[in-house]
Design a protein around this nucleic acid. Structure first.
Lengths: 190, 190
DNA sequence: CGGATCGTTGATCAACTTCAACGGTCGTGG
DNA sequence: CCACGACCGTTGAAGTTGATCAACGATCCG
């Protein structure tokens, strides 16, 4: 997939031959809307890279409501990092939001990839560094902003977010109820 | 410092000679209580590794109150990852909570280190992966638990936390007011 | 010993949730 | 291709959680 090559080029330099080899470690996969890739309680065997489409990670809270904690769109990785690293049962589920094309790799294969192409160690270091940096800022936002401000922030910062994602998932991701989101939208409209 | 070698050994294999070389890229630094290492608005030049003691990261919210978002104790790294990676002004401050001994490295030196010791690329990949994994779980807790549950969780999970850290910093870190923490503690006492 | 900082208590207030009910729309089977 | 059911967004009333403000006591440190 060229889109993955373009993505890699942002972080490391890799020639076409090596790139082909790197790519051979991944499985490409098509998923339709609302397809499960990982279900809470299963061992988290793989990491997923979104070529196009959108995935989400969620858990079910004590009230039985799905709580979305993360979205992954084009050029983002998603997995339960903690459970993946240790190959243990996951506390999260991962599901497609839209019809999507993704790359899949499991831990064992990733280790082989890293052994054969040490430059990928650098790539993943940078990816995790970037992911951690966004977590840092996300946590800051959660501390700093009211729910209303969070909504305004995300809808101006990530307009695709509001357009592509159904409203009840947006509310869930931002940490409040669909009803309250309705109220905010009504208020902003007037 | 042997404590850093012990820490490295958990992630990579490195002989004594290479370790000496690796160590030479870091600066060792003693800081007393409440000393600033980074002040909001300054360029974030360094990463800090805590050999012993405790550092914290915080920002000042619109009400002028310091909001602590992260603590680092023994064997943890701390920096504003986003600002460090880009060598731009930071939105956070970093300060010691106690008298501490730390290792310091700046971006340029880190790049030299990574070039000379590619195995450190793997080390930092694993460190960031682990850091991201804790963020994932932390965000989940923030979504899942009430403030009271958060306090109970952290005080049972991380007892050192309650003992070493003053109460107003605990409240700040958990995202509520010192007054409310008092109330929770009173309730739990009875 | 004295001042500043920290923890506590209680009253009032704002943000957000919960629950119930309704209308619109989307997609699926007949 | 239409009709029906399920799901989604909206509205409003009542209820909770946690914030704010002010005042006081304790403790720590110079």
């Amino acid at each position: 997939m060229d889109t993955f090559k373009t993505h890699l080029d942002k972080f490391i330099t890799i020639n076409d031959e090596d790139y082909s080899s790197v790519l051979s470690f991944f499985q490409i996969m098509e998923v339709k809307k609302k397809q499960n890739l990982l279900v809470e309680g299963e061992v988290c065997k793989s990491m997923y890279f979104v070529l196009n489409g959108c995935l989400r990670k969620f858990f079910v809270n004590e009230k039985g409501v799905e709580q979305t904690t993360e979205f992954a769109i084009e050029n983002w990785w998603i997995t339960d990092t903690f459970a993946f690293e240790r190959q243990i049962k996951s506390d999260f589920s991962i599901q497609s939001v839209e019809r999507s094309t993704i790359l899949v790799i499991d831990l064992e294969t990733q280790e082989l990839l890293l052994k054969k192409h040490p430059v990928m160690e650098r790539y993943f270091r940078m990816i995790y560094q970037r992911a951690y940096a966004s977590s840092e800022r996300r946590i800051r936002y959660l501390y700093e902003m009211s729910r209303e401000e969070l909504y305004i922030h995300f809808s101006t910062q990530y307009p695709w977010f509001i357009q592509r994602i159904p409203q009840y998932l947006i509310a869930s991701f931002l940490g409040f109820t669909p009803e309250y989101l309705s109220e905010i939208r009504a208020k902003l409209r007037s």
